[in-house]
Amino acid sequence: MTASIDHKLRRVLADVLGLKPGQSDAFTKDTGLFGHLPELDSMAVAGLLTELEDRFDIVIDEDEVDGELLETYGALLAFVKAKREAA
């Protein structure tokens, strides 16, 4: 399950960022996300969160969304994993 969460999360990010297949495979835990990607405005982040809810069957509260959550790939992965475990 953990491996598939990782795989699915890479896929969602590839979809939102319009990456080529395989390009998100190179993400590591420290790969920077939103602070490093100026094209991700609030609408794109909102779309990402709704898509995460849909694909992982979780509910994300706005209070849980802060700069840290979206700082690195590793932080976002840990968040989604924790959400799935609690679900």
Binding site: S42, A46, G47, L49, T50
Partner: peptide, 9 residues
Amino acid sequence: TMLRARVLA
């Protein structure tokens, strides 16, 4: 999604 974008902005 639109409500969320507004809250984030």
